[in-house]
Design a binder for these strands. Structure first.
Lengths: 244, 244
DNA sequence: GCCGATTTGTCCGTATGTATC
DNA sequence: CGATACATACGGACAAATCGG
């Protein structure tokens, strides 16, 4: 399954930046040079570069060039702008991640739950409560709700493995986008019971609503992170960017 | 000064979505229709739509159309992906925002400061400590460092007004991008002294490194937010090749 | 299941504008 | 001023996915 060309170019350039092949704080070869070197059209190259701009790898300057502003030391642990599962995050950061199911149930959204999750009241849902360990330490408590009509057939046994592998691999659900909100909340008794909070009485909460390719929100997940092991990275751009 | 066309199209479409002119969960008019209606090329329209996709307003589906997934109820207080000053954020949310300078000093980056900020040791800096009020309540403590050679001539008096208006308006510095990291930290005695923390002993910390158009990082700011009034919103899009 | 129409996704070439040097 | 480099915009071609007959 060959990827799109602009995606390949993006990977190539990103690789050269991360490996130091393009010196930090210096200009990359001009568009003209890169087009010749990578054998592509201008629009396609600019699309790849635009992606690098949005992710904070480079900075484009009209009339001057494209500057490499990648800093290897300050890497993200959790990256914004892309969807990643817990297992993928753990693997990328070379952490040993394990999970444990604390609860699995079938519930119906009442008014209160509908208000926090965004589902309409009365929707049949699966509820999955998971505890995630990094290097043996319990650091993340997850409360997930899945629409039963989308994630049909989900069981506790499946959730013991990878829910997303089931959704994507078995049910062929395409996850398209996910709206996320980061807040800081007081720790609940449940948080204190399972997570080693130390002296902190607050934790980082990532609430996300995930949509499939039919445009229906089929998942709401609240991830409650131990504050010491939470880091969310983002790059804000004034408004230049991509191509075509 | 007229903006770029794709930017205008983006604003038009965003306005129609937010105002409900395009019904939620329904498909927008096809590219073909929009091109005729807005009198533009396909690439220009697609660029505007791409921006809406990244911001979670719409979802594109090959062979089907573009679905409106905007939800007015769940709005952001702080938006990711764009650069906003404190005053702009406050105004957009119809809050009464005021600020107070607690400290202004000229300092030189030592090893410890260089490590946290990302400046090279020995760099001459301005240090500005500000307290931000929303509707009269002290909620955000800001610690900012500016390179003296870039933000030259910055004084306490200027900082009493708008630092960014000085940098952009007077010094003609163009802010291009800003790398931001969100973490949760224990409250310091200083935090507890100035911010009404209630029972919380942690707060949300946004650390940002801001670059000008010459590619030099000229500002490091650490914003320490009261947890009850902190909300960071993001939209993640699934990339063709999955997570990288 | 097939086929054609529709719709979005990718890629290319070109022309012109604008900022920098 | 001219040369270089990025920014914007247009148009065309083909591919891939979807849907209805």
């Amino acid at each position: 399954m060959p990827k799109a060309k602009y995606e390949q170019l993006y990977q190539i350039l990103k690789g050269k930046i991360e490996s130091g092949e393009y010196p930090p704080q210096e200009l990359l070869p001009s568009e003209h040079m890169l087009i010749a070197e990578l054998d592509c059209s201008r629009n396609t190259l600019r699309r790849a570069v635009g992606e690098l701009v949005r992710e904070g790898y480079v900075q484009t300057m009209q009339g001057k060039g494209v500057r490499n502003i990648f800093e290897p030391a300050r890497q993200a642990t959790f990256t914004l702008g892309t969807i990643e599962t817990f297992a993928e995050s753990a693997a990328r950061n070379h952490w040993r991640g394990t999970s444990e199911i604390l609860d699995f149930a079938e519930v119906t959204a009442d008014d209160a739950l509908a208000d926090t999750t965004g589902f309409t009241p009365g929707t049949p849902l699966y509820y999955v409560q998971r505890l995630h360990y990094l290097n043996g330490q319990p650091l993340i408590m997850n409360h997930s709700y899945f629409r039963q009509d989308v994630a049909r057939g989900l069981t506790r046994e499946i959730a013991e493995g990878s829910i997303y592998r089931y959704l994507e691999g078995e049910l062929h659900i395409q996850i398209v986008n996910s709206k996320r909100v980061v807040t800081v909340e007081k720790a609940t008794p449940l948080d204190l019971q399972y997570l080693a909070m130390g002296g902190c009485n607050c934790l980082a909460v990532v609430s996300s609503q995930t949509y499939n390719s039919d445009g229906v929100m089929f998942e709401y997940t609240q991830s409650r992170h131990h504050p010491d092991y939470f880091r969310f990275q983002d790059n804000a751009v004034r408004r230049p960017g991509g191509a075509s």
